[in-house]
Design a protein around this nucleic acid. Structure first.
Ligand SMILES: [Mn+2]
Ligand SMILES: [Mn+2]
Ligand SMILES: [Mn+2]
Ligand SMILES: [Mn+2]
Lengths: 217, 217
DNA sequence: TATAAAGTTTAGGTTAACCTAAAAAAATAT
DNA sequence: ATATTTTTTTAGGTTAACCTAAACTTTATA
């Protein structure tokens, strides 16, 4: 069984590795988890002993099969709780992340199965992120950042950034998961774009914002 | 803000003090929390510095006003979560305690208010224990152990012991919160009693069991 | 290729929450 | 009242998870 801290490290490493595909460096982990590189080195050795990652001194870590499965369990819990908070308790999609950050560490396989059932086995969380099933399986449709879309008409499917401030901003301008987004014009000089939301509302959004909205064409 | 450990100590002390009325000794705390007396002495000093209890060397601790209010918040959370698990997720009343023991430490005032609302502001948890409101207020009707009841006909209102094994036993013989319990006969030699549940089922229960069922006459 | 810069690890400390063993105080028994 | 037992505290360690500063390794630059 993993400690809360070990779980947070493992989840961070998994996310940074793009689902276990690439290896992750000490400084990236330190940055993402808000600790010092020296602390990361300590923890990374512990996780390697537990067979959750492989660690090659100076060259970073890779997530093992076992580590991937543990990470996906934590992510599953995180996203199920976020879904619960929004769907059942009426939280705003920008309010759920920090609470889910705590709830994801509750240890009870029964709880998570019952919660999943209660929510009707959702496929995605309020941010459009896929929820792994109890075996760690999930499906993602081909999503691209709005910034890279070539077709004029797209549908918002997920956000890349789940921060309160970004989600509050999206809500304010009227973007939500499932909204249709038409690209009206790209500004040459700063990459900002003019879009039409649900065929009704025209707004300008920055390049930065458009990179954090994932769409299907 | 309190650590998880501090919260567990404070809650244990509050329970042992009968709602803040009497003072609590080091060994009682150690016993209840499954630690060594020396560890209790350490923690008790910390809690005293934080003004949650008063500590008189060799004579035990008392819960302060502030400590009582913090303890009641934790108890409120514990009981709301237990109610959620039974009412919404379909847990058995014997399965909830350990999970609630973890959930009670989640830090989010918003979460707990929304959960309370979602549950319809319940007055008691699945074990019949009162749920304090957000100001720490709650009401208990005059409940006595079935072992001490003098009237023939009583109604089960709460359990004194929330262990899985005791609750499984109660379910098995057909006792639940709200069940009517008629006392048919008391056995002189071991204090066991014969009862009729809901006017239908006759069973014998031990003195021990009858001391852990709280009823109103 | 030698040197500088960047990234990482090691060495050595801190704090919270535990522990055992010894010392001290309080309660009980003679 | 004194001696014994019980309870509690103190002293001194351990472990997990952090930290800073110094020592390394790797990578980039001259
Ligand atoms: Mn977390
Ligand atoms: Mn999410
Ligand atoms: Mn607890
Ligand atoms: Mn309860």
């Amino acid at each position: 069984m993993l400690s809360l801290t070990e779980e947070n490290y493992l989840k961070a490493i998994y996310h940074l590795s793009d689902g276990g595909t690439k290896s992750v460096l000490t400084n990236e982990i330190a940055e993402s988890i808000q600790t010092r590189p020296a602390s990361v080195t300590d923890m990374v050795k512990k996780l390697a002993v537990k067979n959750l990652i492989t660690y090659e001194k100076y060259y970073g870590v890779k997530v093992t099969k076992h580590g991937k499965s543990e990470a996906l369990t934590i992510i599953r819990k995180h996203r199920l709780w976020e879904t619960f908070l929004v769907e059942k308790l009426g939280f705003d999609w920008g309010q759920v992340h920090d609470v889910a950050e705590q709830l994801e560490h509750i240890q009870s396989p029964l709880l998570i199965e019952k919660l999943d059932e209660f929510l009707g086995y959702p496929a995605a969380d309020p941010h459009g992120h896929p929820i792994p099933d109890k075996h760690g399986k999930f499906h993602v449709s081909r999503q691209i950042p709005l910034a890279e879309a070539t077709k004029k008409k797209t549908v918002a499917r997920a956000v890349k950034n789940s921060s309160q401030s970004f989600l509050d901003y999206l809500s304010k301008i009227g973007i939500y998961i499932g909204a249709t987004v038409q690209i009206l014009e790209r500004m040459e000089f700063d990459g900002s774009i003019e879009i039409m939301i649900d065929g009704k509302k025209k707004v300008y959004i920055s390049k930065e914002a458009s990179e954090n909205i994932l769409v299907t064409e």
